[in-house]
Each structure stands twice: as structure tokens, then as C-alpha cells.
Design a protein around this nucleic acid. Structure first.
Length: 390
DNA sequence: CGTCCACAGGAATGACGGGCGG
DNA sequence: CCGCCCGTCATTCCTGTGGACG
């Protein structure tokens, strides 16, 4: 039931498998294949299809004795341009230090080693959107041009993006060379999700251990959330675990509902625990503001509370500029909800709300050895403010 | 219809810990 | 050990801006 498991068949993706397969097939005859760009939201099977096709191609390549190699890289996990090139180096058998060299140097080592190894390399870059939005498209620029400088080897790219608007961030030349072929993955609908779950459940669950309604509910919930198969599988897996813990023999709808809460709860707790000190303090500031006043907090108010509790801890506060980006980060993690609004005459700011249960914050942060004692603290500036307002 | 608030958020720069090759 | 480069976090300085108010 884990999403890193690659099943033998991918229901409702036969068409995409065929498309990708047809595109990469020429490498078996020693020709470079077209670069492909694959779009689709999370959990639509992009990664699974790509890995599926590449692994089948690998066995075929062995059969035909074709000099083909693959390198799958998840850009979001790998994290930086440097580390992507470092991975590419590894894939052609060159080990590079994980830091210390210039990006250009690493790229050059990769290029040289690739060229001398007489192969066709297929590079699959998953979640490139995350890398491009952060670091720009220089990585792709280098990679799309690499064939011009190779004499004995060839390279093809498979770009995978969760964001359909990615081309807006790309240099048009890079984009056109990257998307010689384009494939869009539609979200799964509830019916398709049901089939996917059914397939997996056959392997993972005992016969009759899964009620039909529970399965349908998982499919329906995930379908409502942009047809995310990963989400559907998670729900079903956790629902199974819940049922097991209660020592029931059948997974019911109720267990799925519980799994939904459970997943959300875990997500928030994990995220909260792993925040840096200052991010925790920001969350705590919002928490205190909400307690004192029902209206939504804005950046200025948060900064005021934040600087005060920093003083209380004996930590020097960060600047408001920095706090602003921290708030944005927390927003994209789904811990806070921040949106810019204009109050006309009274300026422009972000309205910020907690996106999780208050008791969770208290539970998690009060057991933190540094900020723990601040969960019950009453910021002075808050009482002063409310008095002024009234 | 212009002003002006209270910030947003981009760009440049710097400090820092880690790691290289020589 | 030195000089160099890395990524990350943070600061400083900056220009931009939606819309209520006058």
C-alpha cells in the first residue's frame, strides 16, 4: 500500500505507458529519443508510469545489448542544482564530493565521463518545477544543450512537473527543446481510483477484510481532492491500520473517516516538531494573538509579539522581512493560512490564521525544551494593545 | 482622483559551517 | 594548512501596490 511500491500493472494509464514507451523506444536501436515533458497533478501516476516504462526498457536493453543507462532524480528531494549534477555524476560512475566544487566543475566532470562511456543516457527529472521556481532554469539550459558538446554519447531528458504553468518560468528556448513531446496526465476520477485501490487491496488485504463502502469512500475522498491516487492509497492503508489496532476484522467507512483525521493529525505534528526555533516562535506568536483577540493577526502584530517572546527567551529576533518569508513558508506547509489584503488607507498586510487545532500547538510545543514554557506566557504588548483599542 | 499607509516581496550582500584540491 | 567554493540563513535596501480616505 505504500506509494513507493511499483505494481505490475497501472490501471487506467495504459495509454500513457504506450505513449512514453513509443517515445523512448528508439534508444534500443542506438538513436537518441525525443525529450519529453510530462505534466500532471500529484498522484496522477506520472512517476509510476515513468519508472514503469524505464524499468521495462532496461530489461529490453539488456536483451538487445543496447548501451542504455537511466538516471532518475527527484529534484525536490535532491534539492539543488549542484546535487542534481552530483547525482548525474554518480550515475555515470564518477564520485564527487557533496560540496566543495563549483557547479560548473561538477557539470564538466559529468559531461566528460558521459562522453567517454559511449552510452545513451536517459535522465528523468521528477518534480523539476520545485527546482526551477527556486533556482531558475540554468540547470535545464545546460542539460538541453549538452548533446551539442557530446561526440560519443547521447542524452535524452524526461521532465516531470506537478505544475501545469511551468512553461511560464522557463526560457522559451529551453522549453521548446525540452518539450519535443508533451504528455498531460489527467486526474483519476472516483471510478478509476476505485479500480486502483481494488487492485492493490487484492495484494495487501485479506479476502473480505475490506468493506465495499470503505473502498468507495477512499476513492471518493481522493477524487474530491484532485484525483490523487497517492492520497487514496494512504487513506486505505491507514484505515487498515486503524481497524487492525481495534482488532476488527473488517475495514469500515468509519475507519476511513478516522484515517482521514489521523493522517492530518500526524502531518501537522511532524511538521510542527521539525520547525526551526524561530518558525516555532512565529507559530506561537500567532497562537497568542488568536487567544487574546478573535480577529485575524497581521504581520505587524505578529512581529510585535514575536520580538517580545524572543526577548523573554533571550534570543535576538529576526527582522520583519525574514519573518515575512517564514510566514510564507508556514503557509505553504499548511500550518498557517496567510493571504495579502489591502486595508486601503490603512495599508497593505497579510492576514494570518492558524490552520490547525490550537490544542495541537500546545501539546507539541509545550514539550519543546526551548519554547515549552512560552505556551502559557501572556505577552505584555497584547494586553496593552487591547486596552488602547477599547 | 490623487495620496499615502503598512506592509509585500525582489535583489544584493554577508556570515557561517562544511569540504575540496594542492 | 591555505585559498576557494558550496548551500543556507539572515540582513539591508529597495521598489511596488490595493484601495479607503480626503
Amino acid at each position: 500500500m505504500r506509494h513507493d511500491y511499483l505494481p505490475d500493472t497501472l490501471p487506467h494509464r495504459e495509454e500513457q505507458i504506450r505513449q512514453v514507451g513509443e517515445i523512448v523506444a528508439p534508444v534500443l536501436k542506438g538513436a537518441r529519443c525525443s525529450n519529453v515533458f510530462i505534466y500532471g497533478k500529484t498522484g496522477t501516476g506520472k512517476t509510476a508510469v515513468t519508472k514503469y516504462v524505464l524499468s521495462h526498457l532496461e530489461t529490453k536493453a539488456k536483451e538487445f545489448n543496447a548501451p542504455v543507462k537511466f538516471c532518475y532524480i527527484n529534484c525536490r528531494v535532491v534539492g539543488s542544482e549542484y546535487r542534481v549534477f552530483a547525482r548525474l555524476c554518480q550515475s555515470v560512475g564518477v564520485s564527487v564530493p557533496f560540496t566543495g566544487l563549483s557547479v560548473g566543475e561538477v557539470f564538466e566532470r559529468f559531461r566528460a565521463s558521459l562522453d567517454s562511456s559511449h552510452i545513451i543516457l536517459i535522465v528523468a527529472l521528477d518534480e523539476i518545477d520545485s527546482l526551477i521556481k527556486m533556482r531558475g532554469d540554468s540547470l535545464l539550459y545546460e542539460l538541453t544543450r549538452i548533446n551539442e558538446t557530446l561526440t560519443k554519447s547521447k542524452t535524452s531528458l524526461i521532465g516531470i512537473s506537478n505544475d501545469l504553468r511551468l512553461k511560464e518560468f522557463l526560457d522559451p528556448r529551453v522549453f521548446s527543446s525540452l518539450s519535443e513531446e508533451e504528455i498531460v496526465f489527467r486526474p483519476y476520477d472516483a471510478y478509476e481510483l476505485r479500480n486502483i485501490l481494488l487492485d492493490r487491496a487484492k495484494i495487501a488485504f485479506f479476502k473480505d477484510a475490506l468493506s465495499d463502502s470503505a473502498l468507495s469512500l477512499c476513492a471518493a475522498l481522493a477524487a474530491a481532492e484532485h484525483g490523487d491516487a497517492r492520497r487514496a492509497l494512504d487513506l486505505l492503508r491507514v484505515a487498515g491500520e486503524v481497524a487492525e489496532r481495534k482488532s476488527t476484522t473488517i475495514v469500515s467507512e468509519e475507519h476511513v473517516r478516522e484515517a482521514e483525521k489521523h493522517i492530518e493529525h500526524n502531518r501537522v505534528v511532524e511538521a510542527l516538531k521539525n520547525l526551526t526555533l524561530h518558525s516555532k516562535l512565529v507559530v506561537l506568536s500567532v497562537y497568542h494573538l488568536k487567544k487574546a483577540d478573535a480577529h485575524q493577526a497581521n504581520t505587524g502584530e505578529i512581529y510585535e509579539v514575536y520580538t517580545e517572546i524572543c526577548g523573554e527567551l533571550g534570543v535576538s529576533p529576526l527582522t520583519q522581512r525574514r519573518l515575512s518569508t517564514l510566514v510564507n513558508e508556514l503557509d505553504s506547509m499548511g500550518l498557517l493560512n496567510a493571504r495579502v489584503i489591502s486595508m486601503g488607507r490603512y495599508g497593505r498586510t497579510k492576514k494570518i490564521r492558524l490552520e490547525m487545532a490550537r490544542c495541537l500547538i500546545k501539546d507539541v510545543l509545550s514539550s519543546d525544551d526551548r519554547v515549552g514554557r512560552l505556551t502559557d506566557y501572556d505577552p505584555r504588548c497584547l494586553s496593552k494593545n487591547t486596552r488602547n483599542k477599547s
